[in-house]
């Protein structure tokens, strides 16, 4: 198991956002967390990446306890993520967005004297190409279309050469065409790089199209877990989730 979440609980005051959730993803597999709004998907992601501290429970990455580590350490260990609300450096150019991520991954950001302009140029351009942003390197990233910003964010996450990629609703707010393109892009990248992917998603076509394991969250707790077929045929899931969605 590359990523293992063991019985984590997160409560905010009296409200329990995530209750006793366990989850594990094998190396090279694609897993998905689904659940209605407020089920605790984003909170779970934030617990894994160190943005929130679990009240109880532990998170392991490659059999190493990473519970409570700060986000920058977790990122350096090999977990990349995108956020639900697009999270880029809006006033920097596309090139600069990716370049700083590459520089940070190579631990070169404490260099205070070398001009950064032409550093890691080739790595950055290769990354730019791989997320389909060739030709946009000089655009101000905040002015890009929503879909391109999501692609850029994916590029930023990939800059740290992660083993696990966590994508929080990668197609949220996209048109059907953009959704299809994005999913194709993610699929290609995951395949090419041999990545382990954990994502949340509300579009069921996407979920059942690419996920190998699905975990269903409901009101902060795991309702069901298994292959797409198992989940689809689970009565609880049909009742509270798939049924509601129809």
């Amino acid at each position: 198991m590359l990523l293992r979440v063991e019985a984590v609980t997160k409560s905010f005051g009296g409200f329990v956002a995530v209750r006793d959730v366990s989850l594990s993803v094998e190396r090279g597999r694609t897993a998905c967390v689904i659940g209605p709004n407020g089920a605790g998907k984003s909170t779970l992601f934030n617990l894994i990446t160190g943005h929130l501290q679990p009240t109880r429970g532990q998170v392991f990455f490659a059999d190493r306890d990473i519970t409570g580590r700060p986000p920058h350490t977790i990122c350096q260990l090999g977990i990349g993520r995108s956020f639900q609300r697009t999270n880029i450096f809006p006033r920097l150019s596309v090139f600069d967005n990716l370049q700083i991520a590459v520089l940070s991954h190579q631990r070169r950001t404490l260099n205070m004297l070398t001009p950064a302009r032409a550093l890691v140029h080739d790595e950055t351009m290769a990354l730019l190409d791989s997320v389909g942003l060739a030709g946009e390197e000089r655009s101000t990233s905040g002015t890009l279309s929503y879909g391109l910003q999501k692609q850029l964010e994916l590029g930023i996450a990939l800059a740290s050469e992660p083993q696990v990629l966590l994508l929080d609703e990668p197609t949220a707010g996209m048109s059907p065409q953009e959704t299809a393109d994005t999913i194709a892009l993610i699929g290609r990248i995951v395949r090419d790089r041999g990545l382990t992917l954990l994502f949340t998603e509300h579009d069921m076509d996407v979920v059942f199209g690419i996920a190998e394991r699905i975990t269903v969250l409901h009101q902060g707790a795991v309702l069901a877990e298994g292959t797409p077929e198992e989940v689809q045929s689970n009565e609880d899931v049909q009742r509270i989730y798939l049924g509601e969605a129809e």
Binding site: H72, F83, I88, F89, I100, I156
Partner: peptide, 13 residues
């Protein structure tokens, strides 16, 4: 520009 994102590209903000 974005301290949250900077943190998660590995920069100790």
């Amino acid at each position: 520009e974005n301290p949250e994102r900077a943190d998660f590209i590995g920069i100790p903000v």
